[in-house]
Amino acid sequence: MKFLLAFQVLFVFGIWIVPSLTQKPWDSVARTEQWWIERHQQFIASSANLGSDIKIVFLGSSLVEYWGTQGKPVWDANYAPLGAINYGIGGDRTEHVIWRIDNGELDGLTPKLVVLYVGSNNVPVNSNNDEIVRGVNTVVDRLHAKLPNTNILLVATFPRADQSDVPGTLRRIRDIDQKLEALVGGDAQRKGNFIDLFWFLAPSSLDRIYEHLYVADKLHLNLDGYTMWHREMNSTFHRLIQ
């Protein structure tokens, strides 16, 4: 009986949820937190209300969400005037972003570009790098299926020093990023593009991060970090929105 219950599909807040024991990074899985469900509904409403005014979508996890806090001065000066919208939710993994794409957040939109940052939150949860790569690649697949005429710019996973084994974490991230670049970079069929900012945030020794670009948690960027992100992405970004 307990075995059956462990694999039972639950219905929470009107959304089908697969227990975490069975989740893979390429699954489509909703989170159960009420605030998360409300944020998702807000994004659906924004897409419905703004429609063709949305020219650029930033999609992903907290590093995207925090363009609205730590990175807000850069966002307001450079992205908001171009019709960009921020669909980042802190804590999201690939499976959650897949579910959001599948369930209405981008419906009715025809943006020129989606800037995607996702997968970092899978690193502490999923030990298999290839599974994380498959998860991120599935997000790209879903984006292209939903928005076939939209350019996709996948931003490589940033270094993070919030885990106990910093060198091991950084080596894993490099492996993931290199595999994703081979899959997504220059992918004309899916209109995929890849940008790697890793070496602006950590040295080649792979033993630390450049803490002056991070807030105290050693995971999220500060204003200087977001300024760097904008500066180094700028030429690719503008090429893709022409």
Rank of each mutant, 00 (worst) to 15 (best):
F158A: 12
L213N: 11
V118E: 11
A202N: 01
K24H: 13
V166H: 06
F237G: 15
V155T: 13
L4W: 05
I176T: 03
G192Y: 00
A77W: 09
N151Y: 00
R231S: 15
F237R: 11
Q163Y: 14
V184S: 00
L213V: 09
P124A: 09
L113K: 02
V29L: 14
D141I: 08
F237N: 13
N193E: 06
L50W: 05
E181D: 07
D207V: 08
I209N: 07
N151L: 00
E105S: 10
R231G: 13
G104M: 05
E65I: 07
R208L: 10
G60L: 06
W36K: 13
V97F: 12
I98R: 14
M228Q: 12
D27T: 03
R134D: 11
F43R: 00
K2Y: 14
I176D: 04
V140W: 06
S235D: 15
P111S: 07
I152C: 02
W26M: 09
P167F: 06
D27W: 04
D76M: 09
N234T: 11
R208T: 14
V9T: 14
H96S: 06
A6K: 12
L183W: 05
N151T: 00
M228P: 05
M1Y: 10
I152H: 01
L170T: 03
D53Q: 10
Q34D: 14
D175N: 04
H230Q: 15
F237A: 13
R208Q: 12
I44A: 02
D27L: 01
I85C: 13
N126R: 04
Q42P: 00
I56E: 11
P111W: 05
K179G: 09
L106R: 03
F43D: 02
Q41C: 07
E181R: 08
H212T: 14
T138W: 06
V118D: 10
L147Q: 03
V29W: 09
A80M: 12
G83I: 00
R174Q: 12
G91I: 03
T150H: 00
F200E: 12
N49T: 08
N86W: 10
L170R: 03
S164N: 08
I152S: 03
Y66F: 11
V140A: 08
V155N: 11
R208C: 06
L59F: 08
P19V: 14
Q8F: 15
Y79H: 02
N128K: 11
A45C: 07
A30E: 01
D175T: 04
N151R: 01
R190D: 01
T69Q: 10
D165H: 05
F198V: 01
L4V: 05
Q23D: 08
G71K: 01
D196G: 01
W36V: 15
